[in-house]
């Protein structure tokens, strides 16, 4: 595998990650979301491995493996069982309709591109151009949190943001130090468990996982 090919492959994976980020915005079924999230993690792991191979930074293989285990297997599994257990299969209702969300998403991608353009000029890493995609993934994850009502989509948006950050780290600096990555992975796992408990409580309190119910908690005036 030549360097140039690796770069192209990485670009393709970046594009696919971006695509999955949009797919998360477009998907209506919760289980579908979990699947897409798993795919995103898979592309991320693959991309990390490719970068690791191409740059010779072999610790990235561990990161890649970690990503694979965490984001492709473990977290989707947790979410999957959660969705099953709480019996939430119905469609997700969005605050903003999906086409509009997509347009906003495109705008955010353009914005990210615009932001990272100076870095692109400065950096000499082969992965520099994927930084825009990484930032865009973060923004799209946040957009997902903004536009969706359901608590599970909120956590998925959050996890997608984390994916973006991870991707940003690999594309901007060939990955974070191992300790940080391990720490983040652990945090994510714990976060997933906490969110599980959190969902359970929301669900039992409001008999729904619609986070807008939580507006009731606000003191009235």
């Amino acid at each position: 595998m030549t360097q140039a090919f690796a770069v192209q492959l990485n670009s393709l994976l970046a594009a696919l990650i971006l695509l999955t980020a949009f797919a998360l915005l477009a998907q209506r079924k919760i289980l579908g979301l979990v699947h897409i999230f798993a795919w995103q993690g898979f592309f991320l792991a693959l991309s990390t491995a490719v970068i690791g191979y191409a740059s010779g930074e072999h610790h990235l293989y561990i990161s890649s493996l970690l990503t694979l285990v965490m984001k492709v297997i473990l977290l989707p599994y947790i979410l999957y069982t959660l969705v099953r257990k709480l019996k939430i299969h119905r469609d997700i209702d969005a605050v903003v309709n999906i086409p509009t969300t997509m347009l906003l998403g495109i705008m955010l991608v353009v914005f990210s591109y615009h932001l990272t353009a100076p870095i692109r000029e400065l950096s000499n890493l082969m992965t520099r151009s994927t930084l825009a995609v990484a930032l865009a993934t973060v923004m799209l994850g946040m957009l997902m949190m903004v536009t969706r009502r359901h608590a599970v989509t909120q956590i998925l948006g959050f996890l997608a943001m984390e994916n973006g950050l991870f991707f940003a780290a690999t594309s901007a600096t060939y990955g974070m130090p191992m300790v940080v990555e391990l720490g983040v992975a652990l945090d994510l796992l714990i976060a997933a468990f906490i969110f599980g408990i959190f969902f359970f409580h929301i669900n039992t309190t409001f008999e729904s996982l619609d986070v807008e119910q939580m507006a009731k908690l606000k003191e009235t005036d």
């Binding site: 670009s11 970046a14 971006l18 695509l19 477009a26 086409p99 495109i106 591109y113 151009s129 994927t130």
Partner: peptide, 23 residues
């Protein structure tokens, strides 16, 4: 259909963006 065609538009736009960003 608007969503279907909207997705097509999105894909095409992503293609264009990918061209500028990644290629």
């Amino acid at each position: 259909l608007p969503e279907y065609l909207g997705s097509a538009f999105l894909l095409a736009t992503l293609g264009m963006i990918a061209f500028f960003i990644l290629e």
